[in-house]
Simulated scan of single mutants.
Amino acid sequence: MKPIRTMVTFALACGLQLGMGSAWAQEDGLVTGSAGAVTYASGGVGDDQRAALAAMKPDFNLRLTFATRGSGDLKAGVALAITDSKRKPMMQLADSGPNVYVKLPAGTYWISATLDGQEQSRSVTLGRNGAARDVLFYWGEPADQATVR
């Protein structure tokens, strides 16, 4: 697993140097990229992706997980948008998950996640101390989705 971590770390460093604004590295479905001061990694399907994300976990201060209510089955294909407290877009992914790790500057952010037409939103504040926040989004069975706001 060490070669995967080295490749991903190198790719993240190169992307930061180049200032790219979209997904720029994809290794077996694990997508990494940057948008301005924001870096991210999305994936988690399969053992290799989970291991790669686990190795990168300490580098990110916001960690999102998308799953099914009750069973905990992970969900991919989530449209994700993160804006700052003034609703300025920080990042947007059309197809993310089931895990998305994001590194953001300290501040308050609005996270909007949409799966199968059902949108959920959360506010999260990231402190200057660098402590990470884990945010879980659960979608229920179709009969339950009407209660999700």
Rank of each mutant, 00 (worst) to 15 (best):
M1I: 10
M1K: 10
K2W: 15
P3A: 05
R5F: 13
T6Q: 15
M7G: 04
V8Q: 02
A11C: 13
C14T: 07
C14H: 04
L16D: 13
L18H: 04
S22L: 09
A25C: 09
E27R: 13
D28A: 06
G29N: 00
L30P: 00
L30Y: 02
V31G: 01
T32M: 10
G33T: 01
S34V: 09
S34M: 02
V38R: 01
V38T: 07
T39E: 00
A41K: 04
G43F: 00
G44Y: 01
G46I: 06
D47A: 02
D47R: 05
D48S: 06
A52F: 03
A55D: 00
P58N: 08
F60H: 09
L62V: 05
L62F: 05
L62I: 03
R63T: 10
R69E: 15
G72T: 13
G72P: 13
D73L: 06
D73P: 09
K75W: 06
K75H: 12
G77S: 08
V78L: 07
A79P: 08
A79H: 04
A81C: 07
A81L: 10
I82H: 03
D84G: 15
S85N: 13
S85R: 14
R87H: 15
M90A: 02
Q92L: 02
L93R: 02
L93E: 05
P98I: 08
V100C: 11
Y101W: 05
Y101D: 04
Y101E: 02
K103I: 01
A106Q: 03
T108N: 12
A113P: 03
T114C: 14
D116M: 13
D116R: 15
Q118I: 14
Q118H: 12
Q120T: 14
S121W: 11
S121A: 15
S123A: 14
V124W: 07
T125P: 04
G127M: 05
G127K: 09
R128A: 15
G130R: 11
D134H: 04
D134P: 05
D134T: 04
W139Q: 08
G140R: 01
E141P: 00
D144E: 13
T147M: 12
R149L: 11
R149S: 13
